[in-house]
Amino acid sequence: MKKKLAGTALLWLGLSMACAQAADPNLGRNLAATCANCHGTDGNSAGGIPGLAGMSKAKMLGLINEFRSGAKPATIMHQLSKGYTDSQLDLIADYFASRTPVGGAK
């Protein structure tokens, strides 16, 4: 009996930990969609603004940090990048890295 209980608790703990990062598994998708107005649906730009689909997580987070610090000059991204938390940006970068660029880079 005790064993069974412990097993249940462990299973529960394991699942909770696995799920702790994103209460809603679509949070990354939803947050990334806030970028789509300018960077295109799923990060596939319609032109004139860089696309984000398929960009590696390291590259995206690196760029964001440069915008935030001012190391990379920007017209607007230095202001917008400060509106998202690190964990939100992590989810957004994961999401765009998982997207396939459509029709090549634009």
């Binding site: 069974k4 209980l5 249940t8 608790a9 299973l11 529960w12 699942l15 909770s16 696995a18 799920c19 994103a22 209460a23 809603d24 598994p25 679509n26």
Partner: peptide, 19 residues
């Protein structure tokens, strides 16, 4: 126990599968 399992199943559905 039933409740715990139910909760785990819910977590699996909501948290880990695609909501």
């Amino acid at each position: 126990i039933k409740g715990t399992l139910g909760l785990s199943a819910m977590a699996a559905l909501y948290g880990c599968a695609g909501a």
